[in-house]
């Protein structure tokens, strides 16, 4: 019995072991590159030095203040963008006329890179948090809106007509037909938007100088505190991983009733 179970758990455990050794291997190569003089340690400090610096950061209040600043603009921006996209998406999506009429405008506005708005943000808001919010909201809004519109156009016409003939009004149909169909798409949009929002939050801090981790990275770089800079880059990567994980967990939770998620559990 026990041998059977270990055989079943074998490939998974081996994959995990390999994954961990991959990370260790990466840090060993990183450690060796400056030590062997392949790259000057003035530009690439050994991994151990950076990890020690990262450990020190974790005990500093100023570091956590920066993390809090970055996460505040991230969360606030993502929230505003999602709310706006849901409202706009449901209004546009509920009418064929609006969907057709707004198509070109959306297709034109969407590809404008949000970093193009950086000069505008500086001009209007200076280095306050609103600058970051402008960029984050603009970038995240389109991700959510587009997925939501895809989702709404995926609504089963028969289901919609059935609901109509059973006397469901416009609002009731949005609640009971359109919303459940569009929700998986919405969650995909939200997951994409969460990653994009972090990128834009850090970008705004890096380029404009609004408070947060990005600003610290720019400061440590220009101040020559190289191992601090690498430690902060690692920190932003970890935040990114955490956000991705959280987004996936939320997606699974919200869609626990949906066949695509239920199917995974059964299999």
């Amino acid at each position: 019995m026990s041998t059977q179970r270990s055989a079943a758990a074998g490939p998974k455990a081996r994959a995990l072991g390999l994954g961990i050794s991959g990370i260790i291997l990466f840090f060993l190569i990183w450690e060796a590159t400056p030590r062997l003089g392949l790259v000057s340690d003035r530009y690439l400090p050994p991994a151990s030095e950076v990890l020690v610096r990262l450990g020190q950061y974790l005990g500093e209040a100023a570091f956590w203040q920066d993390v809090a600043d970055t996460m505040t603009s991230w969360a606030l921006g993502l929230f505003i963008a999602t709310l706006a996209a849901i409202v706009v998406g449901l209004i546009i999506g509920s009418s064929r006329f609006l969907r057709r009429a707004t198509h070109t405008t959306i297709e034109f506005l969407r590809p404008i890179p949000s970093v193009a708005l950086i000069p505008l943000a500086v001009l209007i808001f200076g280095t306050s948090i609103e600058s970051t919010l402008l960029l984050v909201v603009y970038a995240a809004f389109w991700q959510v809106l587009l997925q939501l519109l895809y989702g709404i156009s995926d609504v089963d016409a028969v289901a919609n007509d059935t609901a109509k003939s059973y006397g469901l009004g416009r609002l009731a149909r949005v609640r009971y037909v359109i919303w459940p169909t569009a929700l998986p798409y919405l969650m995909t949009g939200l997951r994409l938007a969460a990653a994009v929002a972090l990128i834009l939050a850090i970008t705004a801090e890096l380029i404009i100088g609004t408070p947060g981790l990005g600003k610290q990275i720019a400061l440590t770089q220009s101040g020559g505190a190289i191992s601090s800079m690498y430690a902060l880059v690692l920190a932003t990567g970890m935040i990114g991983v955490l956000i991705n994980l959280a987004a996936r967990i939320v997606e699974k939770r919200v869609l626990s009733w949906h066949p695509s998620v239920r199917g995974e559990v059964v299999l």
């Binding site: 991959g22 990370i23 990128i199 380029i207 990005g214 770089q221 990114g240 991983v241």
Partner: peptide, 23 residues
Amino acid sequence: NLLEPLLEFFRAIPPPVLVPLLM
């Protein structure tokens, strides 16, 4: 299996922070 967690980490790093690093 060896590289997957590492690649996930690299993807999660917001690319703009690579500007000062590569500079």
